[in-house]
């Protein structure tokens, strides 16, 4: 989360590289015949190689959608696995075209690292997991509880802030690694476990009896995760941004991977504009007019991608929560395509 050393070192490089990385990324991508996509080294539900070695996940789907929009083939993605230290350099130096690696959108990153966030594909935030037997309904009832947390992280800081703000008594038990923290919680060393909510769901599966534990509804910090691109290439930024908006708009209009062909005959003007049967929206982005049709055909809409990778269709079973559409109580909202 905070990588001050890297930040300082990279800021200088960012200024230097930002000026030379102005040749259109979209054209480069088209001539290379593939989208070079930076992922992490594996995060459950977001980007992880499966048994066949194919990268799957919510972050992978962003890159697959881009490849679908540009090449009509979601597999024209070259994945570059990056550590949290070299991810920004890889983007600045042009090694990758897009960084889709559960990276939190913050001001300092955007202002000083030479990158531009292209939207939010997952609203994450810190949450709590407790045993069901405690019969807690809210994190505000945690006063006096001992909480397992990884030391030296922003998570630890947020925890202390939350307890202080709500005038609760905190007994935190800290551990050096994520694995140790989970193990200690499972062994009963503490009443609650805290980390980013998406992490809580995947840690829960690792417990001896996952069904005996519940994730509390409170989210106490903001971790908006999204793909980012190099600064200074507005056309490419637009392509990435609107690719994500297509995924959300498709869900909003009920266009799915299964019914997208039937939807081509729809009389709804919004669907007609989305699928390119009316207007020339794709061309104005530098793509073909059926770009959105390709994305939905190959990747599905945002809801489908969510459920498949982290939601009910996956072992993680994360609830939509903040990631539901704006008209269903969530935050996912796309500007109109017109």
């Amino acid at each position: 989360m905070k990588k001050w050393v890297a930040t300082a070192a990279l800021a200088a490089g960012a200024v230097m590289v930002a000026s030379m990385a102005s040749a259109g990324t979209l054209d480069t991508v088209k001539s290379k015949g593939q989208v070079v996509c930076g992922h992490g080294q594996g995060l459950a539900g977001f980007a992880l190689p499966d048994a066949q070695g194919v990268w799957r996940g919510l972050d992978s789907d962003v890159c697959r959608a881009l490849a679908a929009a540009i090449f009509n083939d979601p597999n024209k993605v070259k994945v570059v696995p990056l550590t949290s230290k070299d991810r920004f350099t890889a983007l600045q130096s042009g090694e990758i075209d897009i960084l889709s690696r559960n990276t939190t959108w913050t001001l300092s990153r955007e202002a000083s690292l030479g990158l531009e966030f292209a939207g939010i594909n997952y609203y994450d935030g810190q949450g709590f997991m407790v045993r069901k037997s405690l019969k807690l309904a809210s994190a505000k009832e945690l006063s006096g509880a001992s909480v397992c947390v990884q030391q030296g992280t922003t998570t630890e800081l947020n925890l202390a802030d939350f307890f202080r703000a709500n005038k609760l008594e905190l007994k935190s038990v800290t551990f050096a690694t994520n694995d140790e923290t989970t193990k200690a919680y499972d062994a009963g060393r503490c009443d609650a476990l805290t980390t980013d909510a998406s992490g809580l769901y995947s840690e829960r599966l690792r417990l001896a009896k996952p069904d005996d534990h519940v994730v509390l509804p409170e989210i106490i910090s903001k971790e908006p995760l999204g793909p980012s691109v190099r600064k200074g290439d507005d056309q490419w930024l637009d392509v990435v941004k609107w690719t994500q908006f297509v995924l959300i708009t498709a869900e909003e209009l009920g266009v799915t991977q299964a019914n997208v062909d039937a939807m081509l005959k729809s009389e709804n003007p919004e669907i007609k504009r989305l699928l390119g049967t009316e207007g020339k929206f794709g061309e104005s982005l530098g793509l073909s007019n059926d770009w959105a049709y390709r994305i939905i055909k190959h990747v599905g809409n945002y809801g489908e991608s969510f459920e498949r990778n982290v939601g009910q269709g996956s072992p993680l079973k994360i609830a939509r929560g903040l990631n539901a559409l704006w008209n269903k109580g969530g935050l996912q909202y796309a500007p109109p395509i017109r």
């Binding site: 459950a44 499966d50 599966l205 417990l207």
Partner: peptide, 16 residues
């Protein structure tokens, strides 16, 4: 191994 062990498809206490 590190990557495979965090896959939720195989998330179980003894996998790691």
């Amino acid at each position: 191994i590190e990557t495979a062990r965090i896959d939720p498809i195989w998330a179980a206490p003894t996998v790691s």
